[in-house]
Design a protein around this nucleic acid. Sequence first.
DNA 1: GCCGTTTTCGGCCCGACTGTTTTCAGTCG
Length: 573
Amino acid sequence: MPIPNHDVAAIFSKVADLLEIKGENPFRVRAYREAARTVSGLSQSVADLLKEGRDLTELPGIGKDLAGKIEEIVTTGRLTLLEDLTQQIPGELTELMKVAGLGAKRVARMYQELNIRSLDDLRQAAEQGRLAELEGFGDKTQTKILEEVKRLRRDQTHRTLLAIAAQYAQPLMDHLGKAKGVKDLIIAGSYRRRRETVHDLDILATCKRGSTVMDHFVKYDEVKQVVSHGKTRSTVLLRSGFQVDLRVVPQVSYGAALVYFTGSKPHNIAIRKRAVRKKLKINEYGVFRGNGRIAGRTEEEVYDTLGLPWIPPDLRENRGEVEAAEQGTLPTLVELGDIQGDLHVHTNYTDGRHTIEQMARAAQKRGYKYLAIADHSQRITVAHGLMPKALREQIEQIDRLNDRLKGFVVLKAIEVDILADGRLDLPDEVLKELDLRVCSIHSKFNLSRTEQTERVLRAMDNPYFNILAHPTGRLIGERDAYDLDMERIMEHAAANGCYLELNAHPERLDLDDNHCRMAKNKGLKVVVSTDAHRMDDLAYMVYGVGQARRGWLEADDVLNSRNLKDLRTLLRR
DNA sequence: GCCGTTTTCGGCCCGACTGTTTTCAGTCG
């Protein structure tokens, strides 16, 4: 099986950490970090790119040397450089860099002078007071490190789902909004870029002179610990361990600060480099020519000084958006308001909470024109999957409901299981009575890449196959994607009039952004559906649309941005 | 280690906060 990009990236990250601990040229370290990021952000595997004979030096930040190293990893599964490095210094040292407050310099010093190699060594040294004796360390540093080591054990400090972060964010924003003298208040960072998970919240504020917003912030009820507390920037941990930063800038700097704190870091670096070429300097206070500020009040102003149109935050990952902006080819991203209906929801016929009519009314209330009821099929016994007889009952009920609804249509659908051999879990004569079929895998996740891919391709050969639901099966932070050749699947889908779902459930967001972009590049439309099991779940659409935007999708690329008539036409195979 | 309207060498984004410092290093974003 080819080496996944994720593993190549992990090797480069480790090399970067070890080189940094060794005290190597920081720009060389950065080159490895950027390479790791570039590789993990690709929609196609480097192994496949090499197989196609592509020249990897075309990738940004990949030169002759790194291209050779990627090839070495892909062909041998190893990297000599990494092995050499771990001969010189213990590879476990990179674990220590995960402790907040510890970087390469301190890790190197602790290793050289106290032979600290692991979190356990570190905890012992701190408890025995040996850390504080090192030059550049003191009592406070020692205490803080000890706390962070314990916290790392306890909280795992994993990334937080965007939807969970939103639950922390709302009451906090309400709290901050009540502070004296606050003007603008906005969440920036990866939250604003709609990443599927966030590490922390970056809140940006502008306010009148003498505002108490910073004090107001650190006194928030939910704050467990104040990590830092300055005039323009403070950091706190909430009770849950979730980190929140607040930064305050003058109003004239609002746009520049918003660009800066929205990131991503690689995007910022890209535009700052561009600024340097134009003899300008960008920081969070504005765009400067010499000492004179020439822009900064709005984001549009900042981009304008660089000769660029405003770039939507969802795209700011340095994945080609700056070049697209320059060439005037930025996509007009799909918006929540473009969505005409939801094509995958459940009801109390199987494992959903609400009735067909309740779900339909809730969807209509959201402004949709249609809703597809796609309950589970018979194989999913735990969810009371529908046997043919129950499905026929449901169909009749939907027909009766449609007679009563005005300006809204409930579509008859099913979430039919794809069996291990690629057959669908209901006979064709039942499937053909439906408006559409959502097909998905819920078993045998561990098939080989070839078997799993064939399974899906065979299922698509069934003329009643319309949409592949949650295509990779991943659960963010819980379960990896099953092993699939997504390129082949997309090509097969495109060739056979099938579609892939972007499941909007915050724990799934499957397809992810890279796969969305891959689909777009292959001319394959994506369906954004919520998989709602309750009326409230219909609101997950906003997360699906966010992910679609991150994948550069326009309304035209999203099947359920079509009106019902066009939808029916496009579903015809 | 990458890269080029400063093009094959010499640069590489920029500032805030903390702690241990008397002028700054380390870390972080």
